[in-house]
Amino acid sequence: MLAKRIVPCLDVDKGRVVKGKKFQNIRDVADPVELAKRYNEAGADELVFYDITASNEERDIFLDVVENVAKEIAIPFTVGGGIRTVEDIHKVLRSGADKVSINSAAVDNPQLITDSALKFGSQCIVLSIDAKEVAPKRWNVFTRGGRNDTGIDAIEWAKKGEQLGAGEIVINAMDSDGEKDGYNLPLTKIIADTVNIPVVASGGAGTREHFSAVLKEGADAALAASVFHYDEINIMELKKYLQEEDIIVRRENEWK
């Protein structure tokens, strides 16, 4: 049986991992390669790295990080942030990333999804959606790190992203991001019921019950950052708990 995935996310700035609360007050945490190794050993199923600054000079530092991570760990990882062209995608894949996450650039230029999916395969094109509830049960897509309301309906955008060729959707609920009050269950459920590609829930993880709830609501994977960085939740213990909750998870560590 296909396992539900636990995905730690690392925001990287100038080669270092940081974690912001609601995208502000960013503070330094650790070396990305060290953190990646630690998460791998703890049983993370995948990793996500977001390059949060992505000026041209810093881009090269980030590509080095990607390559060093690929060298150290043998689990899949996604890279996002500052991806604007097919060539950007090519570079991170060649550096050792398995998937690329596109956010603002896909809204500006939806053709980028199709072009890159045709070139590299849908399986490595992840559409990342920052969504915020602007009216009851109405979520809009935000871009530019959450500063710009595009007016686009998030559910429609997810559907369109799938048609354009995205192989996975990350739905980041901005209202709950950094609050540790739980994932946005209604939004995640609607998206998961609407598309026939994997859906990764993001934003709001605070307790292990939050993971259980969103995975039971239909998410294929649950992404979180600070609860893992600050060791508030141990991935190995989380997976043991999820298994007790009858959620199928990979527990490879027991093999050795």
Binding site: M1, L2, A3, K4, R5, D45, S122, Q123, G167, E168, N196, I197, P198, D220, A221, R250
Partner: peptide, 13 residues
């Protein structure tokens, strides 16, 4: 078959 999500993505036995 599209009775399941496609792509088949993740850890399976």
């Amino acid at each position: 078959k599209d009775t399941v999500k496609v792509p088949h993505m993740g850890w399976n036995t």
